[in-house]
Each structure stands twice: as structure tokens, then as C-alpha cells.
């Protein structure tokens, strides 16, 4: 895996993956979205049950992407590979977008089902904190003139933010929340009907593929940006010697 830490090797190995990933993500998204509109209405929730297919994958991926961000920060702090820092930075935008999407679709779902857009229960609050942690990382990462200093400080913060992940995950078990407890990953198997389970799994895969596509594309852009900077610097040195 440390061979891949070399930006050039990483770019060469992952370059062929990017286009297929975008295609897979688009295909899965379309399949999942069409399927989501063909599932039968829920006996209690009616049509609003279809929010499930947007809301649940967004929330799961919002959490998982922060996990990826935190692990990248850990790798940066231990091994000081600039690629790990770039990976953490590239995860911010999709992660924050998924978390924001989960919060917004949650509000849109809560209004008809719970009768309120927002409650301050543990799951919703900890998701909001997750969103704020994404922002905090992004703000700190951009707050320094020195790239190395910014990477080191932001990585420490990103690592500290990992504390919030188990709190989000187990908030529905530790506190009495209006938000329902887990029904997909739980002891005794899923409580979801197969009619809903399959499109949900497809949407999960779609969100995941989309994240990977965005992540790799951003990483490639970053590697290319650094290469351009290095070439410019070399050019400037050569011009001076002439």
C-alpha cells in the first residue's frame, strides 16, 4: 500500500478507474431512483417512504466519509504523506454534502411523519455536529499561509472529530430519540421488507460509487496542480540561469 503513496504511482494506478466509477455511479443512481419510484407505498407513510432511498444512504455515507477523512488524517500524522492530506481535503466536500443532504431530507421527512421539521434529539444533534466538524476541518485547513502547517493542524482536528462517529451511530440506542433506531444493520438481521431493501442497497452502492468517483477525481486534480506548480518552479529556475 505504501507504493501507492507515491503520487505518480497513485495517479497511474487509479487513473483508469475514474471514468468507470462515474459510469457505475450514474448507472446505479438511475437504477436506484427508478426502482425507488416503483416500490409499493408504505401502509403508514404512503408516498413519503420514498425519501428513505435518498435520506438513509446520505446519512450513512456522511458518516463513512468522515471516517475516511479521519483515517486519512491519522495516516498523514503518522507517515507525513502529502497524498493523505490531499485525501482528507478531497473528502470534505462530498462528506459535507451528504451530511447536509441527510439533514435536509430528514427535515422534509420529519415534517409529514413527526409533524415537525426539526427536534433536538440526540441523532439529529449529533448529525448537525458532524456537519459542523466538516466545516471546522475545512476552515482550519484553509486558514494558514504555510501548506504544511495547515495540513498538520487540520489533521489533528480531523482526528479529534472521529470521537463524534460512535456518538452518531449509537445515539439512537443511548438516548430516547424521536429518530427511530437502526433497522438495516442490527442484531437479528434487517427489519426492512425486501421490496424496500434492494433499492436501498442499490442507492447505497450508488452513493458510495459517487463518493469514490468524486474523491479520486479531486485527488487527481490536486496531484496535477502540484505537478504544474513544480514545473513552473523549475521553469522559473531555468529562465533565471539563461
Amino acid at each position: 500500500m505504501f507504493g501507492l503513496a507515491n503520487p505518480d504511482t497513485f495517479a497511474r494506478v487509479t487513473r483508469p478507474l475514474i471514468a468507470p466509477l462515474w459510469v457505475i455511479a450514474a448507472g446505479l443512481l438511475i437504477t436506484g431512483a427508478v426502482w425507488a419510484f416503483r416500490v409499493p407505498e408504505d401502509a403508514l407513510q404512503g408516498d413519503t417512504v420514498r425519501i428513505l432511498f435518498i435520506h438513509v444512504p446520505a446519512a450513512s455515507l456522511g458518516l463513512a466519509v468522515y471516517g475516511a477523512l479521519g483515517l486519512s488524517c491519522l495516516f498523514y500524522l503518522i507517515f507525513r504523506h502529502s497524498l493523505a492530506d490531499a485525501a482528507a481535503r478531497a473528502a470534505v466536500l462530498p462528506g459535507a454534502a451528504y451530511t447536509g443532504l441527510a439533514l435536509i431530507t430528514g427535515a422534509l421527512w420529519g415534517q409529514p411523519m413527526w409533524g415537525t421539521w426539526w427536534v433536538w434529539d440526540a441523532r439529529l444533534t449529533s448529525m448537525l455536529v458532524l456537519f459542523l466538524l466538516y466545516i471546522a476541518y475545512a476552515v482550519l485547513r484553509g486558514a494558514f499561509d504555510d501548506e504544511g502547517r495547515a495540513a498538520r493542524a487540520a489533521s489533528v482536528l480531523g482526528l479529534v472529530g472521529l470521537i463524534n462517529l460512535p456518538i452518531v451511530k449509537f445515539s439512537v440506542d443511548w438516548w430516547n430519540t424521536l429518530h427511530q433506531p437502526a433497522s438495516l444493520l442490527r442484531a437479528g438481521g434487517t427489519s426492512l421488507d425486501p421490496a424496500y431493501l434492494w433499492p436501498l442497497l442499490i442507492m447505497m452502492a450508488a452513493y458510495f460509487a459517487l463518493f469514490l468517483a468524486i474523491w479520486l477525481t479531486t485527488l487527481h486534480t490536486e496531484i496535477m496542480r502540484r505537478r504544474v506548480l513544480a514545473m513552473r518552479a523549475r521553469q522559473a529556475r531555468e529562465d533565471r540561469h539563461v
Binding site: A143, F144, D146, A153, V156, L157
Partner: peptide, 22 residues
């Protein structure tokens, strides 16, 4: 400590720290 030497001081620390204050 993380914000030492940052371009913007006070508000930056607030945004970093307030989620951890909760």
C-alpha cells in the same frame, strides 16, 4: 494551539471549538 499563526484568529477558534463544547 491548532490555530497558532493562522491568518484569522478569533472566529476561526470559535468554529473549531464550539462543536466540541456541546
Amino acid at each position: 494551539a491548532l490555530a497558532i499563526g493562522a491568518r484569522k484568529g478569533g472566529l476561526l477558534i470559535a468554529v473549531i471549538v464550539l462543536p466540541l463544547f456541546l
